[in-house]
Design a protein around this nucleic acid. Structure first.
Lengths: 198, 198, 198, 198
DNA sequence: AATGAATGAGGCTTCATTCAT
DNA sequence: AATGAATGAAGCCTCATTCAT
């Protein structure tokens, strides 16, 4: 088998196992058994168990990062809502295409190492900045009302993560539906216009 | 030292370590070193490393559960928004009082065991149901507009978790401020009245 | 409770536990739980777990030793067969009265320690000598035919031990019956008079 | 080193240690030190300390079982006494060839576990049945006189065990001599023909 | 490129014994 | 005479990693 191919094959099996059982409950023995290779072979392709996990995480973050773009408000661009829906759809698709990764990103990494957690934190931090910047833009354009942008950005990320983690499993809601629900929630809130709860 | 006192002392040190390093990276050796007790003493008070973690988790979930109440809409009750703010304040206080727990609940348990994950999932499921029921009530009262309540409930939980996890650390935002920001977001959304992003 | 009484109480419970589970599977915790005393109290009465076992073994060996007598062939003494039956009956009674001990003597001690095994070996060695001497006597009197007395003595002890260990449990054979069976076997063998198997 | 060879090497060292010190007093550390291997290597070949003991026991029982055959009384078969001597010689040889095993089978297993004791009890039970059946056959042929066959079978096993355990060590008696002594004892008993001890 | 036997640090847990009260 | 909390040595087992073939 070609080296690159073999490498990929190991990655795939490892990803599945990490997602199913978590990082700590997946042993190198499990991975090589699943991949059908010898113990030593694993170390020909990856420096360590940690390294393979790290690579999986990097790939995932890269793919996700490429989904997320600041809203384009130049003339001729699609309406912002549509852009946001598209971004969310892309994110959802990344996970839907490979549920395996979902569990990893949402949970698996934590507690591994300060290094891992920092990496993840930094990633989410960058995403949060993009969101904040978009909100700021919206505000400048008079579309978004003044708000605690940092809170809103984090809330949005958290909402997305939780909905993904808990609802993607159940087949009873389509990705589009979920995306629209979240966007609607963040746009208008849940209150009837004019109503007050205070 | 009194047994109950000693037990508590061990719990406190274990909680701190679990929170700092995660479950897997904390060894019983670490715990007993921190608590200043002998190896055997630990097992006098807890059946296993897993058992002490389980107890910490149980305690936390119990405390949190006691914070969360469905909105009371009977006559004379405080306005719903205020009630929600109070609930959120209580939740924030639980974590603020003991940051240690935060990390555990938000992340640490994952990947330990199917049992643990299920327990946590069930807890969040129960919280989600309370939120959904409150939304339903609001809808009946004409305050809340129709929406996908399951999505909104999960989004709310996710938003809270993420904000807690990332922003409680920074001293630059008070609990009240964060709670108000989230409530506002979920009430009215971020759009200027009348604006549209579609 | 009187010290002597308490000591006895601990011994009884320990004996039962050792017999039921063996030496290694019986912990000091088990003994004190059964005896209803505190940990420290145990060590007021016995130096160690090993010491209590040793005492039980000593008692048993003493009791057994008192059962076994060389055959008396002086005038007016009961016939030798009757004496042997009586000896066996006494031995059986010791065990029947306290099955608890049976398991200990037949098996439990082994593997504890070189010291224990030696003690047991020496005990059986003394019993063997008594038997050998009795056979020698019988030979001198023209009752017993020449034979390898050492082998016969050991065989007799082994036969008794095995029959005790395996058949005393089953209620379907009385002690008297077992004793008679063994004595008959060792007296006449199993062959029909005049038959040959060579 | 070849896996099968290494496995055997570990087994040999373990057998020696178990025989010398008993199961409980032999630690995995002892075994690996004796075998000159690393801790992990042991577990590459055996699931647990218990498992290696179990295998040793199984092997021994299998070898012994293959020694023991019911007496063949068809025409042309060797005389029964000769067959019995052969069986005993085979049994003695198994132990003589590997004294190590003797201690294990005669004693070591006891108190390990209910499972072990049961296994051993069942093995001896099967042997007893073979002996009983042979006695029955002898009776039908008019060679063996009526007797309590169950007692005789157990007595025979016990006699053999004890003689093996205590006399094989001393070099002063050959296997053949011991076997002949026991067979003679069980055939004719110890009494002079016509004598009575009642 | 691949293998798989070997390694050994490190983890969890048990339990006989001691000692302050 | 009694208690029971505390101790810590010792045991079993796992598993990521290495290396000779």
């Amino acid at each position: 088998m070609e080296p690159a191919e073999r490498r990929e094959q190991i990655l795939i099996h490892a990803a599945r196992l990490f997602a199913e059982r978590g990082y700590h409950s997946t042993s190198v023995a499990d991975i090589i058994a699943a991949a059908g290779i010898a113990r030593g072979t694993f170390y020909l392709y990856f420096e360590s168990k940690r390294a393979i996990f790290e690579e999986l995480l990097d790939r995932l973050m890269t793919r996700l990062a490429s989904c997320i773009r600041r809203v384009d408000v130049s003339d001729g661009a699609p309406p912002p809502g549509e852009q946001l829906l598209c971004t969310m759809a892309r994110v959802f698709d990344v996970f839907a295409a490979d549920r395996t990764m979902l569990a990893i990103l949402l949970s698996g990494a934590v507690g591994l190492d300060k290094g891992f957690d920092d990496k993840l934190a930094e990633f989410y931090g960058r995403v949060a900045l993009v969101v904040e910047r978009s909100l700021e833009l919206g505000e400048e354009l008079g579309i978004v009302r003044p708000c605690n942008r940092r809170v809103v950005a984090r809330a949005a990320i958290g909402a997305l993560k939780e909905v993904l983690a808990t609802m993607l499993e159940d087949g009873d809601a389509s990705c589009a539906e979920l995306a629209r629900g979240i966007l609607d929630l963040f746009s208008r809130g849940v209150l009837v216009e004019g109503a007050s709860i205070a």
